[in-house]
Amino acid sequence: MDRITRVQDYPLSERAPERILSARGKPLNALTLEAVLFGEVSIEDLRITPEALRAQADIARLAGRPALADNFERGAELVHVPQDLIMDTYELLRPGRAKTRCELVERARLLRTEYRALRLAEFIEEAAEQYKRRGLVTD
């Protein structure tokens, strides 16, 4: 999907529905009750895509909310990360779970290489440094 350049395109579902595709490539207007009843729409089709999140990030930035946009972009990187790994990474970031800085750095590497989650990897590396500085983890 092209980047959004006008805040007037928001809400995308009303102003630019053709730009929204489900995870399996279905346009928004194909997600009908009939399609659900005929088994043509699965729960997968009702999930957000990285593209939609990046479009929302564009809108947030155009509306003057860069921090919100950054969060949407971190979210976009997590869309294809399996639920268990998300929960495991969240758990690892909680105090006292990771004992060493390296455990966190290793998780950052995994997310970067396996899921191209570049921003998140950086974010977790930063957490690792801060946790070490504040004594939550050893090296």
Binding site: P11, L12, I20, R47, L53, F72
Partner: peptide
């Protein structure tokens, strides 16, 4: 799917 309601 569109995420429109994720905005502030």
């Amino acid at each position: 799917v569109s995420g429109d309601y994720l905005q502030t």
